[in-house]
């Protein structure tokens, strides 16, 4: 029994970190753009396809494919900001609905281009690490490792570079940031571009784990939603805490009660947190 608990906790922490990867771009986009981006999952899907094209069609090594995915995604994000989201800066709700339209366009474009069938993505590693009775699949360990490195790199960028500071200033308060000389015309596209790139990299990174098809965007969107509500809209440390919590809840409830109970517990928790602390676990009070 204690073995099962320990194993569940390990599973939960790994899963939570994967969910954090899925959610971090979403929370950044909300922080900068004030947009609840329903197309977030589709950018994850696009990232998975870009990585697939890089590895399977162009024969690139996986890290290079991932780097290219990130670069293309930043451009795509900036472009989308310019064409779709810019007119709705003052209007959160319209921006949100525009993102629904964008999600429809992206998903069905992918369906036309790639067809509905799942695509095969070569496994990078296989086998398990064993610690006594405890098991960690190597594929997850690898994804986790790369994911943590990317998250740390992103954290360093955010905390210790000029651009990162400007972005953080925007997340905190847009008007004040503008007064202090943060150039909105650059920072907005950059913010969304980074959010999209994080989603796309997550998609590419998790493609070997969870597969590639035009419909894989639904799960990351749902998880990002939950993580971001729990953690607080726009709060990156809150998202981290919430993601790990979500991973643990899913893993423990699935292991000891049932899978459907896990989903109900999760959503019930979301409702309770929103009612008690509308701004989320670590969000700023605003509601």
């Amino acid at each position: 029994m204690s073995f099962l608990i320990a194993q569940s906790i390990i599973n939960g922490v790994i899963l939570g970190t994967l969910y954090l990867m899925m959610a971090i771009g979403f929370t950044l986009a909300f922080g900068v753009m004030r947009i609840v981006n329903f197309a977030h999952g589709e950018f994850y899907m696009i990232g998975a396809f870009l990585a697939l094209i890089g590895v399977n069609w162009l024969g690139l090594p996986f890290p290079l494919a991932l780097a290219l995915t990130a670069a293309l995604a930043i451009l795509l994000g900036a472009l989308v900001e310019r064409i779709v989201f810019r007119p709705f800066r003052a209007d959160e709700l319209s921006g949100m609905i525009a993102s629904l339209g964008l999600a429809m366009i992206l998903q069905h474009a992918a369906l036309i281009i790639f067809g509905p069938d799942p695509q095969s993505f070569p496994a990078l590693v296989s086998g398990v690490y064993r610690l006594g009775d405890l098991i960690v699949p190597q594929s997850r360990a690898l994804t986790l490792g790369v994911g943590v490195v990317i998250l740390l790199a992103f954290y360093v960028f955010l905390m210790h570079t000029r651009m990162g500071r400007a972005l953080r200033a925007l997340v905190q308060d847009q008007e004040v940031a503008a007064i202090y000389g943060v150039r909105l015309e650059i920072m907005y596209p950059l913010g969304l571009g980074l959010g999209v790139a994080l989603a796309a990299v997550a998609g590419g990174l998790m493609a070997p784990l969870f597969g590639v098809s035009p419909f894989i965007g639904a799960t990351p969107l749902l998880k990002a939603f939950i993580v971001v509500i729990l953690g607080g809209l726009g709060s990156i440390p809150g998202a981290a805490l919430a993601a790990i919590l979500l991973g643990l809840i899913e893993s423990l409830t699935s292991s000891f009660v049932s899978a459907s109970a896990a989903d109900i517990v999760t959503f019930a928790l979301v409702v309770v947190v929103l009612l008690i602390r509308p701004a989320g676990l670590l969000g700023r009070g605003e509601a």
Partner: peptide, 9 residues
């Protein structure tokens, strides 16, 4: 997409 807890059980 994550079945590891269920499979573990």
């Amino acid at each position: 997409v994550d079945f590891i807890p269920l499979l573990t059980r």
